[in-house]
């Protein structure tokens, strides 16, 4: 098992948050840095799991180009926080 040498720093947390379009308050950054650190440590434990054979080789799984029934628009929009005239409605994005 390899030891993690670099700790997760605040800048990294802010970068990941910005990629996910999440605003973090300053006091949250430290808390998430610790949690990221924990998560990465858990993942490192996977290195201890012995390698196993791959699943049977599955290749070329395809379907014919034939239409299937779609969802009704109402059903498609059912979970949306906001809608307008059949569209999903969200805040301005740029």
């Amino acid at each position: 098992m390899t030891e993690r040498t670099t700790a997760v720093d605040a800048e990294e947390v802010r970068h990941v948050a910005s990629l996910a379009r999440v605003d973090l308050a300053d006091d949250e950054v430290g808390r998430f840095a610790e949690q990221f650190e924990d998560i990465l440590t858990y993942f490192e434990r996977l290195d201890e799991v012995p390698e196993v054979d791959h699943d049977a080789d599955l290749t070329n799984v395809m379907r014919p180009d034939e239409p299937r029934e779609c969802l009704e628009t109402d059903a498609a929009l059912e979970n949306a926080a906001d809608t307008e005239d059949g569209f999903f409605k969200g805040p301005n994005v740029s």
């Binding site: 299937r68 029934e69 779609c70 969802l71 628009t73 498609a76 929009l77 005239d85 059949g86 999903f88």
Partner: peptide, 9 residues
Amino acid sequence: DEPNTNVCP
């Protein structure tokens, strides 16, 4: 022209 009609899970 109808939005969100050709959609599925």
